[in-house]
Amino acid sequence: KLLSSIEQACDICRLKKLKCSKEKPKCAKCLKNNWECRYSPKTKRSPLTRAHLTEVESRLERLE
């Protein structure tokens, strides 16, 4: 599967780190437990900047 097509777990399953069936409108866990089942939009991760990478590398060197 391509990364862009990976389905996201519902908010509660993601928060509780449960295996989500990803069914809509309610996944199996939410249906069974009568929880409100919501699927928040995916958040875009910002790409690493060179400055951040350099900072992490220098912190790693100090720890070694």
Rank of each mutant, 00 (worst) to 15 (best):
S4F: 14
L48P: 04
I6G: 09
L2K: 09
L31N: 14
R50A: 01
P41F: 03
L3V: 11
K17S: 04
E55P: 00
T54H: 09
E64H: 10
R14M: 03
T54W: 05
T43G: 11
P25Y: 02
Y39M: 05
C10L: 00
R50C: 01
S5F: 11
L53R: 07
S46Y: 02
L31M: 14
T43F: 09
I6V: 09
K19D: 03
K26Q: 15
R38N: 15
C37T: 00
W35Y: 15
L15G: 14
S58P: 05
C10V: 02
C13R: 08
L53T: 01
E64S: 13
W35G: 13
K42P: 15
D11T: 03
R38Q: 11
E57G: 01
K22Q: 07
L48R: 02
L63I: 15
Q8K: 10
L60Y: 13
R50H: 02
L2A: 13
I12Q: 11
L53P: 04
P47F: 01
N33Q: 13
K1H: 07
I12H: 13
K22N: 06
L3P: 07
E23K: 12
S40A: 10
Q8M: 10
I12S: 09
K24H: 14
K29Q: 08
L48M: 05
H52P: 00
S21R: 01
E7G: 10
C30G: 05
R62T: 12
L53G: 02
C13I: 06
R38T: 15
R45I: 01
K26Y: 11
K17F: 00
R59Q: 13
R59L: 04
K42N: 08
S46A: 08
L15A: 11
C13L: 05
S5W: 08
P25R: 05
E64I: 11
C10W: 03
S4N: 08
C27S: 08
P25C: 02
E61C: 13
C30T: 06
P47S: 07
C20A: 03
E36R: 14
R50F: 00
K24T: 15
C30A: 05
E7I: 10
D11I: 03
T54E: 13
P41V: 08
R45Y: 00
E7V: 09
A28W: 15
A28C: 12
E57H: 06
E36N: 15
I12R: 10
L15I: 09
D11H: 04
P25D: 08
R38I: 15
R45D: 01
K16F: 06
N33P: 01
I6W: 12
L15C: 12
R62G: 06
S40E: 05
K16Q: 01
E36K: 12
H52E: 07
S58F: 13
A28V: 12
N33T: 09
P41Q: 09
E57R: 06
K24D: 12
V56P: 03
L31P: 03
A28I: 10
C37H: 02
C10T: 04
T54A: 09
E36G: 12
